[in-house]
Nucleic acid binder design. Sequence first.
DNA 1: ACCTGAACACCGTTCAAGT
DNA 2: ACCTGAACACCGTTCAAGT
Lengths: 174, 174
Amino acid sequence: MPTPDRTSYAEIVAAGRDLLEDSGLAGLTMQGVAQRVGVRAPSLYKRVRDRDALIEAVAAATVDDLAGRLEASDRSLEGLARAYRALAHERPEGFRLMFAAAAPQELLDRAGLTIVDSAASIAGEEHALDAARLVTAWATGFIHMELAGAFRLGGDVDGAFDYGLAALRRGLGA
Amino acid sequence: MPTPDRTSYAEIVAAGRDLLEDSGLAGLTMQGVAQRVGVRAPSLYKRVRDRDALIEAVAAATVDDLAGRLEASDRSLEGLARAYRALAHERPEGFRLMFAAAAPQELLDRAGLTIVDSAASIAGEEHALDAARLVTAWATGFIHMELAGAFRLGGDVDGAFDYGLAALRRGLGA
DNA sequence: ACCTGAACACCGTTCAAGT
DNA sequence: ACCTGAACACCGTTCAAGT
């Protein structure tokens, strides 16, 4: 005697993303997600293996989101970096989770290749991969530190971001 | 009727650091730490407010460790970056925790000022803070990505680190 | 075929009782 | 003055019983 579905995998992952931002990783509980989608916690196990799998799915959805934003940008060094930072500001917990949880290689490659593409046009094909790693590492670290509140020696944080972009262009050009 | 102490705050924090590396943040449990120092979990509450306070103390000990290593390096751009990366390779979970948990401002400033000092000699006093943030952000992001296994498009990761150091020197010199 | 309450394991935390 | 077992709250997870 089939019962109409009261939720779906996509709805669960979306609720997980929102709960993550509201309550942090420790607050991303099965009971919390269940409440948001309107079922009891045990029902989630029909669609998700366990909490770790849900966390992975939330991380994967965030990487997918990021890849889409990078592709939708003007693909310049500056455009890519600002799109990356904008996502991190909108979903800081999701940003952190991308580096704490495993995401599908295919999605990571999609985001990575967009950046390598852009890097090639600045530093040349020969150094494209090294250049992409330089820029991505800088942006990733800048955002991590910014979110951790590590920039408290004063100064202008937005200005430091622009300074970094300009200095990287100089360093890559040579 | 006093009882001889069976453990100490320092021993608890040290056990926490080791357990963190062995079992990850989720594995850093009060029961696990208690077992390592030879008491029962409730006894830890005589010396530590709660699990969050213990996690903060572990993060602070890691920042203190880092500050000491930076000060003991030759303080060149390359020396600082390599000392940072070496710590992260030895204590990857501790490195991650520095950006996930709050550490005392005084310790963070101590580490930060060592880097600003070095940056000043390369980019000039005027841009010292921006330059320090560029280098620190790059190293932090590089290590985060490396630890997350995000460098899987091939190529030589150590080579990419050296390429980054050289490009940053070029970009900062101008 | 999905949903639920009940049950169990595990962990954080408190507290009265021991020494 | 510190240490402990017992107790409680909370969460992840399983499962038999409902529809």
